[in-house]
Design a protein around this nucleic acid. Sequence first.
DNA 1: TCTAATAGTTAGTTATCACTAACCGTTAGT
DNA 2: ACTAACGGTTAGTGATAACTAACTATTAGA
Lengths: 109, 109
Amino acid sequence: MIAAKQYDLALNALGDPTRRAIFEKLEKGPLSVVHIAEGLSVTRPAVSQHLKVLREAKLISMEQQGTRSIYSIDPEGLQVVRAYLDRFWDEALHNFKTLAEKTEIENQK
Amino acid sequence: MIAAKQYDLALNALGDPTRRAIFEKLEKGPLSVVHIAEGLSVTRPAVSQHLKVLREAKLISMEQQGTRSIYSIDPEGLQVVRAYLDRFWDEALHNFKTLAEKTEIENQK
DNA sequence: TCTAATAGTTAGTTATCACTAACCGTTAGT
DNA sequence: ACTAACGGTTAGTGATAACTAACTATTAGA
């Protein structure tokens, strides 16, 4: 991955199903690595690697507590992806509108 | 990809840099396949395959005009991803808030 | 101090998926 | 009918990245 932009990192990170599973585990609140790993079908080291990717994308943040690493959802990455999607919103609605108008005309025939 | 849910399809689709490049080309308006392909570093068949993935994710829609296939941004896929991200918003803000409070306490020392 | 628990790293393997080449089908124009 | 333009499909290949196994480092507790 030679992604420079933040949204590249974030969308790449969320593109993997295992990483989404990890991300979704944090939906209910912060968790340590062992807690994140349990129930998942991959080994703990694999989880560690995914956590690194998610962290670089600023989708999660980490706080050290003794020997434990506690991970939480980070709003920064979410915000970046949101902003990216919003770029396309106007164009999408415009397309939708013209399509709707066409359909209407079509129906009048 | 054995993804059932719409947001799985959408996030998987946006996870690839070439597909993002295609998607971003449609930001300014609808385009035919040849127009999408020009400037990209992959062959036209590759573009066709990516368009299929984006279409299944409802991120783009297609309209046939003679021999041309005109592609546009589809708001449906955008909306699905947005809703997915929103699921994490409250939790993310909560984490952010407690972190902010902790930092404040830390600074008071 | 010794041990257990937690988790990050790295080398090597495997599996996935993006890509090209070759092909086919359809429509528009001459 | 013939040709050109457009674009979707498929088989096979190559590159990427997800994964495991083995190892190391750090901290907590007995």
